[in-house]
Design a protein around this nucleic acid. Structure first.
Length: 455
RNA sequence: GUGGUUGUAGCUCAGUUGGUUAGAGCGCCUGAUUGUGGUUCAGGAGGUCGUCGGUUCGAGACCGAUCUUCCACCCCA
């Protein structure tokens, strides 16, 4: 054999069972999205580079897959950058398109582009693959699916409340118990930064704070110092490091820290509103938890920030995330359209369900009956019966070749087909069918009518 | 992008300080059994040891590069 073919790093093939399991998740999520009133859209796999570049921070730009221009791309390359081997500068001159990095930014582009056709508030969902030039790890791929639901054109906090219910609905439907929906608010982070005199260092400050549960208090303080956050400010943070427990108690502590920050107090108010509503409405299986160290997607989130953590027993990064972005469409020239949305990480949810054995046994839609092929005459007779079975909604098929019985039975066995029908000469003359139940080995000779009733 | 790790049959893995013809279990194919699968028995196929190069009389093993896997950073679903 020649060299074995392969697929690029971080991509995967899916076999029939895997596809069935993935579809089970897709269908569950899609069903919930539609129950909550979201409508589907799709956008292209690749966008103009300028649509994506600069929207996810420097780190994000690095992870965007760029598509090389067609034709004589070197002829139009930026010569100065080429000579200087300056890849960063050279890229825009040889690549004008890039693969979608997430679904949120293309959606913002969509909203701006179609603003006159859209009825606001617009609730859309989108289930499509995205690509990141990241280094693969467990639960981290270079091609993976995101399932996004967003609302644009309403700044009502009821949307946040509904999204928490939506998360809960999906994970409950998937029988994935013990999921934690973490929530925070950009205004609180901003308020804290203001109070400690690091307003201009918001990102540095939050990136450091985000690592609290991973590297510990001292290391976080160290990182903050190295980023130039004043010592007195870090001292003011002290109550934050031990902050935990019930939503309300955390809110009280935050109030004392943020009393002088108007923005911070606004954030607290928002969180309290959401928490009150959820307490009233109740959640099925998920838990809502306030986590002030949560700091994701700060390049565009302006209000609520969400992140969903898998049950503690599995070691997996977040399986969902989202938040409120007041000005996402602003970067494309449409002001004053607030949006909020969440995302489900399909591939990670898959891994979690697999690890916890939460897939129902019936996900694979299998053939129910296999007709044994004894020859052309019998095959034709069988196909007539199969036609009727199919019309009755029964998945049935004929073994295509008049192979040895053993081979045909084996085939049924390996594909886990529950029933086999044998039609030979004697059955044909009496117009009956011998139905064999593979699991028990039992056999009955039946009329076509009884056969349909039996399966 | 930085540092580390992994790769031997379809799958899971052995393979001694470098030494004849690279093994096992499971799976696969054929037969025992021409209208009966799963169990059993007998036989069989299947490997450029990830790839390329180097050291050596000799490399699956040692060295280098590269690809891949997983892990820690970074970041994230």
């Amino acid at each position: 054999m020649a060299q074995k073919p392969s697929i690029p790093k971080g991509t995967r093939d899916f076999n029939p069972e895997q596809v069935a399991k993935r579809n089970y998740i897709f269908n569950t999520i899609r069903g919930a999205f539609e129950t909550f009133g979201f409508q589907p859209i799709e956008t292209p796999s690749f966008e103009n580079s300028e649509t994506l570049m600069g929207k996810y921070g420097d780190e994000g730009d690095r992870l965007i897959f760029k598509i090389l221009n067609s034709g004589d791309f070197l002829g139009k390359a930026n010569e100065e950058a080429y000579e200087a081997k300056d890849s960063l500068k050279l890229t825009p001159s040889i690549s004008e398109k890039a693969l979608r990095y997430d679904l949120t930014v293309p959606f913002a582009r969509y909203v701006v582009q179609h603003q006159n056709e859209i009825e606001f508030p617009f609730k859309r969902y989108q289930i499509q693959p995205v690509w990141r030039a990241d280094r693969p790890q467990k639960g981290r791929f270079r091609e993976f699916y995101q399932c996004d639901a967003d609302v644009v054109g309403s700044d009502s906090l009821w949307q946040e409340v509904e999204f928490i219910q939506l998360y809960d609905a999906v994970f409950s439907a998937l029988k994935l118990e013990g999921v934690t929906i973490k929530i925070n608010n950009r205004k609180i982070l901003s308020g804290i930064a203001e109070v400690i005199g690091a307003h201009d260092k918001l990102i540095d400050f939050t990136v450091a704070l985000d690592k609290l549960d991973k590297i510990g208090e001292e290391k976080v303080k160290e990182e903050m110092r190295s980023k130039g956050i004043p010592e007195e400010g870090i001292e003011k943070l002290q109550p934050l490091f031990s902050l935990s427990g019930a939503f309300e108690t955390q809110i009280e502590v935050l109030k004392s820290i943020l009393s002088t920050s108007e923005e911070g107090m606004k954030g607290i108010e928002e969180l309290a509103f959401i928490d009150n509503a959820i307490s009233e409405l109740g959640l099925q299986t998920a838990a809502l938890q306030l986590d002030v160290t949560l700091a994701r997607g700060l390049n565009y989130y302006t209000g609520a920030i969400f992140e969903v953590a898998a049950p503690d027993s599995v070691k997996m990064g977040s399986i969902g995330g989202g938040g409120r972005y007041d000005d996402l469409t602003g970067i494309f020239g449409l002001k004053n359209v607030s949006g909020v949305g969440i995302s489900f990480g399909l591939d990670r949810i898959y891994l979690v369900l697999e690890e916890l054995n939460k897939f129902p046994e019936t996900v694979t839609k299998n053939v129910e009956v296999l007709f044994i092929n004894f020859g052309d005459k019998e095959a034709l007779f069988s196909l007539k019966a199969i036609k009727t079975l199919r019309e009755n909604g029964i998945n049935a098929e004929l073994y295509p070749d008049a192979a040895k019985m053993k081979k045909q039975m084996n085939h049924a066995n390996k594909r886990a087909i529950p029933y086999v029908v044998l039609v030979g000469e004697s059955e044909m003359t009496s117009n009956t069918f011998t139905l064999k139940t593979m699991k028990t080995g039992e056999q009955h000779t039946l009329t076509l009518e009884d056969l349909i009733a039996h399966i």
